[in-house]
C-alpha cells in the first residue's frame, strides 16, 4: 500500500509509534492526536498495548537514540525495515533537541552519554520538529499525506535530511547573512523564549536555546531557502 497515492487508500493506515529517549511529551502528543485520526489510522503505541503487526505503513519515531545503547540502535534499524514511511516526530527525534546537551556520567545510567536524532542512524522520510509538536500537527500531517499534497509536506521532507537545526543556525543562515526581514516568526515560535527581537532583528539568548529547530522551520526566509536548495 502506498499512502502517497492518496485518496485511493483502502482502509486505515497501519501506524506504529516507538518512543526512544526523551521526556514522553512527543509520544503523549501522538496519543492525544489518536482520537482525531482514528478513522484513518490504526495506531500501535506502547500505551495501548503490544504491537499487532509485522509491518507498518508509517512509523512515528519519538525521542532521540542513545548511541551507547546497541539495543536502541538495532531497534531503530528494525523499524526502518518494517515500515514504508518513517516520520521523526518532535525535536529530539528530528534534530537532537535538548538531548544534544547530554554528556554522560550521570546516575542511573552513566554510560549513556551520546544521543542522536533518528536520521543519524536510518533514513527518515519526514521530520517534524517541535517541543513537543501539537496533536493537531499530526492530524494535519496525515491529512496531507493521504491527499498526497507534496507541496505542503515538502518542508518536512527536506528537513528529514538535516541532522541539526537550531536558533544558532537561524542566526548564522538568516540574520548574519542579512536576509532577515524582521517579521518576528522566530520570536513567536521559540518555546523557551530564547529569541528576542532587538532593533527589528532576532537576538539569541544562547543558554536558553534547546536546539529544537522550530524557529528555523518557521522562518519564512530560512524555510523557503532550505526547500529550494533541497528541492527537486
Amino acid at each position: 500500500m502506498t499512502p502517497e497515492n492518496g485518496n485511493t487508500t483502502p482502509g486505515k493506515l497501519r501506524v506504529l509509534n516507538v518512543n526512544f529517549a526523551g521526556c514522553e511529551g512527543c509520544n503523549v502528543s501522538v496519543l492525544r492526536a489518536y482520537p482525531k485520526i482514528s478513522d484513518v489510522v490504526d495506531l500501535d503505541i506502547a500505551y495501548l498495548g503490544e504491537r499487532r503487526h509485522e509491518s507498518y505503513d508509517v512509523a512515528i519515531i519519538t525521542g532521540g537514540v542513545c548511541m551507547n545503547d546497541p539495543k536502541s540502535v538495532e531497534e531503530l534499524k528494525e523499524i526502518r525495515k518494517i515500515s514504508d514511511i518513517v516520520v521523526a516526530f518532535g525535536s529530539c527525534a528530528t534534530f537532537g533537541g535538548i538531548l544534544r546537551f547530554c554528556r554522560g556520567g550521570q546516575e542511573p545510567r552513566p554510560d549513556q552519554r551520546n544521543f542522536q536524532p533518528a536520521n543519524s542512524v536510518i533514513r527518515v522520510d519526514y521530520s517534524i520538529p517541535g517541543c513537543p509538536p501539537t496533536p493537531q500537527m499530526l492530524v494535519s500531517f496525515f491529512k496531507f499525506l493521504r491527499e498526497g499534497n507534496e507541496r505542503r509536506l515538502k518542508l518536512f521532507k527536506v528537513v528529514a535530511g538535516v541532522k541539526k537545526l537550531s536558533g544558532f543556525d537561524l542566526i548564522d543562515d538568516v540574520v548574519l547573512t542579512g536576509l532577515c526581514i524582521g517579521c518576528g516568526a522566530c520570536e513567536l515560535s521559540c518555546p523557551t523564549g530564547a529569541i528576542r527581537l532587538i532593533e527589528k532583528r532576532p537576538d539569541l539568548i544562547q543558554e536558553k536555546c534547546i536546539r529544537c529547530g522550530t524557529c528555523y522551520v518557521r522562518c519564512p526566509r530560512a524555510s523557503s531557502i532550505i526547500c529550494m536548495k533541497g528541492g527537486d
Binding site: 517534524i128 520538529p129 517541535g130 509538536p133 501539537t134 493537531q136 500537527m137 494535519s140 500531517f141 496531507f144 505542503r152 518542508l155 518536512f156 517579521c183 516568526a185 515560535s189 518555546p191 522550530t214 522551520v217 518557521r218 519564512p220 524555510s223 523557503s224
Partner: peptide, 12 residues
C-alpha cells in the same frame, strides 16, 4: 507563508 504554515502545521 508563516501564518498558513502555523495554521496547517501547529508545531507549538
Amino acid at each position: 507563508q508563516f501564518f498558513s504554515q502555523m495554521r496547517d502545521f501547529p508545531l507549538l
